[in-house]
Design a protein around this nucleic acid. Sequence first.
DNA 1: ACTGGGTAAACAG
DNA 2: CTGTTTACCCAGT
Length: 165
Amino acid sequence: MQTVTIPTEQGEFTAVYSEHGLARLEFPGTRRLDRNSATGPSKVTESKLRRWSATTAAALEQILDGKKPASLPPFDWSGGTEFQRCVWAELLRIGPGRTKSYSEIATALRNPGAARAVGSACGANPIPVLVPCHRVLAAGGRLGGFSGGLDWKRRLLSRENVTPK
DNA sequence: ACTGGGTAAACAG
DNA sequence: CTGTTTACCCAGT
């Protein structure tokens, strides 16, 4: 695992890469102590890392600007369950300025009634912003929750001209 | 505004 | 397997 910091207007994000791609993205101010995994030499090559970092930084910048990212880095979702990966994949289908409710996601996955489980899966999303869990609202356009803090959710949405109740 | 029952998934033990 | 927790939802007070 390799960590790379990404400076933006909104602060310094931290990206964590495995040999398969971007595994985690952290908001500014969320210090993690496990900075160096002592599991031998990192398996992610320098050339991959530089390419992925550039793509991640550009995508992050674009989303913080309320725009659609031109391209995304590969994601390493190996830590997630099958259900969580399905939810996260569905989130990627929501464009900037659009929102979906937790139950709409559940229905789209042909598992209506799983709205609450969808909420849990969103909370477990290791790559916020790029995997836009901030575009998922509760029923009736209410804000719902956000692992990075509701102020971030409001900020990201307002940048896309969305104002929840 | 608050409560209760229903629901699905992850996790600890 | 049971109990607990969870970024939910809806119909009643």
